[in-house]
């Protein structure tokens, strides 16, 4: 157990030791980072110079857009960075000989693959947590900006779900429009969605000795699978319904369902949660695929010859 812990820490250290790791963390959180900057400028401009106050209704849209944009963009660009991180942890280690050195120590191969997976998961969690932290900071700035504005329009109040409306304190502040539970659920969704992709990339990384080549190939396959899904459910299903059945096996469709703008907004507005029907079934399917990719990777790795 202690050895496994050391192995995970060692792998995490290797990931974070790379200069590009910091770049990845920043790039993945570009939306909340830029928003922080923009809100900070607004804060200085409006509070510092007394130009009046931002209306609540405007900020409501900003905050909603910020969360939706972040989750959507994260879901879109995270695969590119994750492929490179996975490639560095496996493919590059095969070519550089680090993997050989690791396997000369008394640890099993399944332990190596588990430790590396956990370390990449922690990296992903870190990326998600940093985004969450900045979003929280954005909300704090936003709250300060609209303090005492008292501008919750009647129309807006009507459009809110009743649970949210009731949870608002008497001097309603916009911060409560995105509850902590909703924010955490969105971040958890982002994390689990990408976990499946980590498993997918690991399977590919076992066949390559170059992280770039591995990333390029695996992302191409990922896009091909999704394109097939789109064509099969659209045009092809009209020709033959069997395409519709085939498309059900395209694992990327669960990510599409999970990160649909409608789902994100429903969570933000408290209308849906991780346990809601559509979202939960997507998460369940994603867990199944994650386990399948991980088992496949372990099987391939146990047979792999280390010749460099």
């Amino acid at each position: 157990m202690k050895r496994m812990l050391f192995l995970i820490l060692f792998e995490l250290k290797k990931i974070l030791n790379r200069k590009k790791a910091l770049l990845f963390l920043l790039a993945l959180n570009v939306v909340p980072l830029v928003a922080s900057l923009a809100l900070l400028i607004a804060f200085v401009k409006f509070r510092g110079f007394g130009f009046g106050q931002i209306q609540f209704s405007v900020l409501y849209e900003i905050v909603q857009g910020l969360f939706t944009g972040h989750v959507k963009l994260f879901a879109f660009i995270a695969p590119f960075f994750l492929a490179l991180v996975v490639g560095d942890s496996f493919s590059t280690e095969f070519s550089r000989g680090y993997m050989k050195m690791l396997l000369l120590t008394p640890i099993n191969r399944w332990q190596v693959i588990t430790a590396k997976t956990v370390a990449i998961m922690i990296f992903l969690l870190l990326a998600v947590a940093i985004g969450g932290m900045f979003l929280q900071a954005d909300l704090l700035i936003a709250r300060t900006l609209t303090q005492n504005s008292g501008d919750i329009s009647e129309t807006l109040l009507q459009s809110m779900p009743e649970s949210v409306r009731n949870s608002l304190p008497s001097d309603a502040k916009p911060l409560y429009l995105v509850s902590t539970t909703s924010a955490l659920q969105l971040l958890a969704m982002t994390f689990f969605g990408n976990l499946m992709l980590i498993g997918f990339f690991i399977v590919f990384s076992l066949f390559f000795e170059s992280a770039i080549l591995m990333s390029f190939t695996s992302l191409s396959v990922l896009m091909a699978v999704h394109t097939f899904y789109l064509i099969a459910t659209g045009l092809l299903s009209k020709i033959d319904p069997v395409y519709n059945q085939l498309a059900q096996w395209c694992f990327t469709r669960h990510l599409d369902d999970l990160f649909a703008i409608k789902s994100i907004q429903n969570i933000l507005e408290g209308k849906a949660g991780l346990l809601s029907e559509g979202i939960f079934s997507s998460l369940l399917a994603i867990s199944f695929w994650t386990a399948a990719f991980y088992l496949l990777a372990t099987l391939i790795f146990s047979r792999r010859q280390i010749l460099h």
Binding site: K100, L103, L104, S302, R303, R304, Q305, I306, L307
Partner: peptide, 10 residues
């Protein structure tokens, strides 16, 4: 040597 040390499993 690689076989002895488990680097080549088959």
């Amino acid at each position: 040597l690689r076989i002895l040390l488990g680097l080549i499993p088959s």
